[in-house]
Simulated scan of single mutants.
Amino acid sequence: MTTLLEARYRTVLRLLPAYYRREREEEMVETYLADLDRDTQDQSRPTLGEVASIAALAVRSRLGAAGAPRRYVLLGSGARLFALAAVLFLAASAVVAPVLRLTWSFTRGGAERRLFLADFTDHGLLDTTVAVAQWILPLGWSVAYVALLYDRRRLARTGALVAAVPTLWPLVRSLTGATVITEPAFVLTLALLAWLPALALCAAHHRDAPPARLPFGTPGLVLMATCVVTGASLVLLPAAADLVWGPANCFLVAALGRLLWSARRAASAAPGGALALAALGLLLLAARVAAVYPWLWVPGAGPYTGGALAQTAALALLTVLLAVAGRRELAAR
């Protein structure tokens, strides 16, 4: 006769995919119930730690764990590539943008230098601390990128989560009533642009996943090339530059490269890579639209909106092409 505790364990185990339950459910239930007296099982429940452990196992088993069916292997590969590409683009932006601002502020005379320093000296302790954190914490993207490619997964997770924290500050201030968000859609999409890759990195690069690797090049050279693309896009058209501009331009270059590579060597392309980039492109497209929409009818914003709309069109086109290429890759495999 099934006890209430056994039924509760089986309910929690339904978080696991069907293939995993078929192989391991009975063994897991026996393990959970082994040291418990049958007379007390109707008054017991799975502990919070056990539920959390099963939930984490459910994520791992759906993201390419050993012995997983093909669709889960592809899902895991796509999630890892999505996280790696996003972390790379965000790392380059987190390095280049502060360097360019420092260079501008300290080479344009005392007025620009004082204006820069005012962000850290003319406010209270809390705002000064937040300003410093917003400069330092995003460098965690670079830590996450390097650590991930050298298979230091715990450090990579920590770096990504720390780097994503500053995107929550505007939301926290609005909830406490300290400020009013004038562009809530843009703030929200920026938070998603940081937190979705960070969470994907934590979930997909689990202990059973294969080591992260780049399709080509070494980690240092790829990061340097991405920084060059980011810096060039910010310097050549500064009027259109915002927080999405650099990562989106890096995506455009990567998407073109991926499409050309898959057209010539489809068999050697990483499984799920095109769809992973398409998902990242969709996320960047949402952030780009949210950024440019409030400025469409603002007088004098033509240089900004012109560049942003051109980038929006390119993002939409390449995202669609990547989605089509990704479907063809999956069908071919």
Rank of each mutant, 00 (worst) to 15 (best):
A66V: 15
S53P: 03
A65F: 07
Q43A: 01
A34E: 13
S53G: 05
G67N: 14
S44Y: 00
T31W: 13
T40L: 09
D37I: 03
R71I: 10
L63G: 06
Y72W: 11
T47V: 12
L88C: 01
G49E: 04
R71K: 11
L81Q: 13
T31I: 11
V59D: 01
G67A: 14
G76Q: 05
L57I: 06
Y72H: 13
L36E: 00
E25Y: 07
G76Y: 04
R70F: 06
F82S: 05
S53I: 12
L74F: 05
A56S: 15
T47L: 07
S77R: 09
S44A: 15
L33F: 06
Q43M: 03
S77C: 13
V29G: 03
G76T: 09
E50A: 14
E25Q: 11
D35S: 14
A86W: 04
V73A: 08
R80V: 01
D35C: 09
A58P: 08
V51H: 06
D39H: 00
T31L: 13
A86Q: 02
T40A: 11
L57T: 15
A52Q: 09
A85F: 08
I54W: 08
T31D: 13
R38E: 13
L33Y: 04
L74P: 02
L81C: 06
R71Q: 15
F89Y: 07
R80L: 01
G64M: 06
E27T: 07
T31N: 10
I54V: 15
V87G: 00
L63V: 07
V51C: 09
P69D: 13
E30R: 14
A34L: 09
G49I: 04
R45T: 12
R24D: 10
R45N: 10
A66H: 10
R62T: 12
M28T: 07
A65V: 12
G67V: 15
V73W: 05
L88H: 02
A52M: 06
R62I: 08
E27R: 08
T47Q: 08
Y32K: 10
R24A: 07
V29A: 04
P46D: 08
L88I: 03
A68G: 01
S77L: 12
A79S: 07
E27A: 00
E30P: 00
P46L: 14
A55W: 12
A66Y: 05
A79P: 00
L84I: 02
E26I: 09
A55L: 15
D37F: 02
V87A: 01
V59K: 03
S44I: 14
R70T: 11
A79Y: 04
D35W: 01
R38N: 08
T31S: 09
L33H: 05
V29D: 04
D37C: 03
A66N: 10
D35G: 12
R62W: 08
L57D: 14
T47A: 07
V73S: 06
D39C: 04
V59I: 10
S44F: 08
